[in-house]
Design a protein around this nucleic acid. Structure first.
Lengths: 122, 122
DNA sequence: TAATATTTTAGGAATCAATCCTAAAAGGCG
DNA sequence: CGCCTTTTAGGATTGATTCCTAAAATATTA
């Protein structure tokens, strides 16, 4: 764990926000101005690969990173892109696993809404 | 509906494949060699906007387009990216709608697996 | 149907997230 | 401390997608 990797990791762990690489880069540079953008991307990739953090691909927007590594559904605001974690009810995907022969290796479930802040603003 | 838009639309409707913009561009150019890449992207965007086709954002890969416009889950091969449509069991997302106050505007559910072709190849 | 106004296209430049490259800097270790 | 390996900074590059502009197609009008 290098200093830069630790810093990136700490930023993700500090809050439940699901930040983009660019946001993490900005936050990290506030503390380590020499940090390179490529270093952020590479370390995020490594952390994801090790399963220490989660990666969330977003439609028409940069990916976001998640301190919660267990798979779970997300609630996404269609206006501002803000993401919240949801908990998966037990056995929800069971019908699929049954009909597909149990060979599901993973899932991704996003629910879209307009968050209260954006609804107020409209 | 211009000739180029009709061609793009026909290619998507012709088969259940979920093709990328680039694949559609290649197929279309076989019939209309002057067709520009930008025209494909713009018309795909328009068709999606009108709800005539669906768009499927893929992790770390170009988006794919879907002739089935009603929302439905997808089964995605993690190796080759091939996509199949699934049917959503009635009321599957009900628990979320209940706990979130029914204000869900859409969803996206992807199940990942390794398709038979890729499994054989391995 | 010819003239004019509007929309769409072709072609290529530009954008933007993300990856890759290379020499320099940091770490690890005996 | 010196040698070896790994990681970084910084910038170039890629790849999907969008944007720009003049020309072409289409629609509208008289």
């Amino acid at each position: 764990m290098t200093r830069q990797r630790q810093l990136i990791y700490d930023i993700i762990m500090a809050e439940p926000e699901h930040r983009t690489a660019e946001e993490i880069y900005d936050l990290a540079r506030a503390q380590m101005p020499s940090l390179a953008r490529g270093t952020v991307y590479r370390n995020l990739g490594l952390l994801v690969g090790e399963g220490q953090i989660g990666k969330l691909e977003m439609p028409d927007a940069p990916a976001r990173y998640d301190r919660e590594r267990r798979p779970h559904p997300h609630l996404v605001c269609q206006k501002c892109g803000k993401v919240e974690d949801l908990t998966m009810p037990d056995g929800l995907l069971r019908p699929f696993a049954l009909s597909l022969g149990e060979d599901i290796t993973g899932y991704e479930l996003k629910l879209y809404h307009i968050c209260p802040a954006c609804r107020k603003r409209a």
